[in-house]
Design a protein around this nucleic acid. Structure first.
Lengths: 112, 112
DNA sequence: CCTCTAGTACGACATCTTTCGTACTACTAG
DNA sequence: CTAGTAGTACGAAAGATGTCGTACTAGAGG
C-alpha cells in the first residue's frame, strides 16, 4: 500500500500553514473541505488549474499538515485536519474560513 | 509632506494579509507591535536583515494593510492596524499572534 | 490481457520573493 | 552650511513558487 507522509500535530509550523493558506487555489480546497464532507477525492474539486498543478497544491496542503490524504482505490481521499489545526493554532482555521466567506460570499450562504 | 499609501479597511485582501503574515521577519515586526506600544520607529526593531530588506518588509506589511506608517522627522512610526484587521477578518490577528506565542514562547511571557 | 480513471513524477518556464549593496533623499542638530 | 540619522530607490542575484505538458504508475472493471 502506498502511503503519504504527514507531519504530526506537534510538528505543524505556523509559517508553513500560513503560506499554505495564502494561495487562492488552496483556500478553495480548504473551503470546500470545511463546507462539505470528509474524504472528498481530488477530482471532486473543480479547480481552475491543470491536473499536475492540482497535485502540487494538494501536496502543499498535506505537507503543511492542513489536510490528510489517504489512498482508496485509484483515488485519494482528502480530509481537513481541523482538530489538529485547532489544537496547535486555536482559532486560526476558523478565522481564515470566516474571512474567506466574508470576502467572497458563497451564493448559498446569504445570511449568517 | 511625504505620504505613504495605505489600503482602506474595506480593501484588505485575505490573500495579501496571509502572505504578509507568512514570513518570519514580518511576523516578528507584527509581534513586537502587538506586544509593545504604537508608533515604534523602524529602527526600534532588531531585525536579522539589512536596512534595505527591512524597508521591503515594512512596505509589504503596509501595502497589505497590516500596519500604518507615518512620517515623523527622519523616522517612520509604525502602528499595527489591529482594529481594521479585526473589523475585516475577525479573530485572524489574534489567532496568528497566539499561534506565534505558542510556537516560540517569549522569555518575558511565561504566564497568560 | 486491455482500457479507463485518478493521480504522480519530472522537466521546463515565467514570475515572485528575499536578500543584498550602493547611492540617494529628507530631516535634525550643530 | 555640515554632519549625522532614518529610511528609500534601484539594480542584481539566488531561490522559491505556480504553472504547464508529457510520460508514467496504481488500481478498477471488462
Amino acid at each position: 500500500m502506498r502511503t503519504l507522509a504527514h507531519p504530526d500535530r506537534g510538528e505543524l509550523q505556523l509559517d508553513t500553514v500560513l503560506s499554505a493558506f495564502s494561495d487562492p487555489v488552496r483556500r478553495r480546497i480548504v473551503d470546500q473541505l470545511a463546507d462539505g464532507p470528509d474524504d472528498q477525492a481530488c477530482s471532486a474539486f473543480q479547480l481552475p488549474v491543470s491536473k499536475s498543478t492540482s497535485t502540487h497544491h494538494f501536496r502543499v496542503l498535506r505537507e503543511a499538515g492542513v489536510i490528510e490524504q489517504r489512498y482508496s482505490g485509484t483515488s485519494i481521499l482528502n480530509t481537513l485536519r481541523a482538530a489538529d489545526l485547532e489544537a496547535r493554532f486555536p482559532g486560526l482555521l476558523k478565522a481564515v474560513l470566516q474571512a474567506a466567506r466574508d470576502e467572497t460570499p458563497s451564493p448559498t450562504a446569504e445570511r449568517l
